[in-house]
């Protein structure tokens, strides 16, 4: 018998910082209708678009191993912005799931 809870397979996507912008728009965060940030736009020419693996609709669970669960929108956006800005890494690791 199957599990009553649908199992979503998470995918680790590495986005190399090869453009001046990350180039994604996100919505959602704790205490909103969309409790985890969801990608709503991917801009051509940005690092995310160049990577080719992030998709509109992906829900972001973690950024560089930092969980976004329970974080409000601004906090999640800040974590992603800082991951792009830091010179300590030449890429960002996104753990994402496809929407149901």
């Amino acid at each position: 018998t199957g599990s009553p809870v649908p199992v979503l397979s998470a995918t680790l996507v590495q986005v190399v910082k090869n453009a001046n912008t990350l180039g994604i728009a996100i919505e959602g965060g704790a205490n909103t209708r969309q409790p985890l940030p969801r990608i709503v736009t991917i801009q051509k020419g940005g690092s995310a678009h160049n990577c080719g693996q992030l998709k509109v609709g992906h829900i972001i669970l973690e950024v560089n191993g930092i969980s976004l669960r329970g974080r409000e929108h601004k906090d999640a956006a800040r974590i992603i912005a800082e991951a792009f800005k830091t010179k300590e890494k030449d890429h960002i690791d996104f753990l994402v799931v496809e929407p149901r």
Partner: peptide
């Protein structure tokens, strides 16, 4: 605290 049936929509941030 009042329990809301619908949560508010989120703002959108471009990164």
């Amino acid at each position: 605290r009042e329990k809301r049936l619908t949560l508010p929509p989120s703002e959108i941030t471009l990164l």
